[in-house]
């Protein structure tokens, strides 16, 4: 059974005051996410990612199509009991402390008595704000609110968790922490469906991704299927590169870029042998600092996919 399934899911919004006309925010999205997957839902701003998540949470009603979670229609009470949801840029009752808010939500999940305190403590520890549990949320920073949002999504030990831009507002340490939490969720068999436009996160975490642009699914699949991982060339960082040597190698390389402290980046085409090049540079007084292979990244794929849709749209 798929954890999440949508079929021809579409959403139109009416825009315009005097003569409202439909604007299609999501267009016939068909998607299936298997249980236990970490699934990245990617796309530029305004692509329809949040709209899809809201349709799955039944905060929006679809214009057409269907959405199922754990085999039941989205919005079903039994489904809500088994899922967690972190909205984008979450806002919570700021007159409450984190502990009070989470206790309230835990009770909405049917927890009572000591179970509430136990579960609340556990998620506060998980997201790293245990020591601030008794501060009112109006005193929290954006990153701390994001952590509270994550905590409330994990309260019921969900089978499926939906995270809308979970890294938003977090510092590098916080992002790393959230990535670890997502991997722990995956390890205990939880399905993680998260939207993001930070591709490095998706690349580090996801088994599968879908890319959305202008409300349409433009690509989906395993990262290994989507990305050919072909060698695109080599990147060298060198020091002590004389002007004469630079002029000599220029016709054989893709580009030479000056860096700080007299260093240069040299990009080699894939057919050029790096060994021979390294030997040549070394024999003529240059010092090689690093050498890295260049492969296709998710970012390259994303730019190609989204760019193709946008250029079709604009006719350029």
């Amino acid at each position: 059974m798929a954890a999440i399934e949508t079929e021809d899911l579409s959403k139109d919004f009416l825009v315009g005051f005097w003569r409202p006309r439909p604007y299609r925010a999501l267009d016939r999205l068909t998607l299936s996410v298997a249980e236990g997957e970490v699934f990245g839902f990617l796309g530029p701003n305004g692509a329809g990612k949040s709209t899809t998540l809201k349709l799955l949470m039944q905060l929006l009603y679809p214009t057409s199509g269907t959405a199922h979670i754990l085999g039941r229609p989205a919005g079903d009470a039994s489904v809500k009991q088994r899922i967690g949801f972190l909205p984008e840029n979450p806002y919570f009752y700021d007159h409450l402390t984190a502990e009070e808010l989470l206790s309230y939500f835990a009770r909405l999940f049917g927890l009572r008595g000591a179970d509430v305190a136990r579960r609340v403590s556990s998620v506060l520890d998980d997201v790293g704000i245990a020591s601030e549990r008794r501060l009112r949320l109006r005193q929290y920073s954006k990153g701390m609110i994001q952590r509270v949002g994550l905590a409330q999504a994990l309260l019921n030990e969900p089978d499926v968790v939906f995270l809308d831009e979970p890294m938003s507002g977090l510092d590098p340490l916080g992002r790393r922490h959230v990535r670890q939490i997502m991997l722990r969720l995956r390890d205990r068999g939880c399905t993680v469906f998260f939207s993001s436009h930070i591709l490095s996160d998706a690349e580090a975490l996801c088994s599968r991704v879908a890319i959305l642009a202008q409300g349409r699914l433009v690509a989906s699949g395993h990262l290994s299927e989507i990305l050919a991982f072909e060698l695109r060339g080599w990147e060298l960082v060198v020091a002590n590169l004389s002007d004469a040597l630079r002029a000599a190698i220029a016709p054989r390389v893709r580009g030479i870029t000056a860096l700080a402290r007299g260093r240069f980046t040299i990009e080699l085409p894939p057919e050029e042998s790096p060994d021979r090049f390294l030997h040549e540079l070394g024999s003529r007084g240059a010092q090689v600092v690093s050498l890295n292979p260049l492969r296709e990244t998710l970012e390259d794929y994303f730019v190609q996919s989204v760019g193709a849709v946008e250029s079709r749209q604009t006719g350029l």
Binding site: M57, L59, K80, P87, Y91, G110
Partner: peptide, 14 residues
């Protein structure tokens, strides 16, 4: 307006 309703209605609450 403040979107606090999003997290609440995602809970088992009609």
């Amino acid at each position: 307006e403040r979107r606090s309703v999003f997290a609440v209605l995602a809970k088992p609450l009609s």
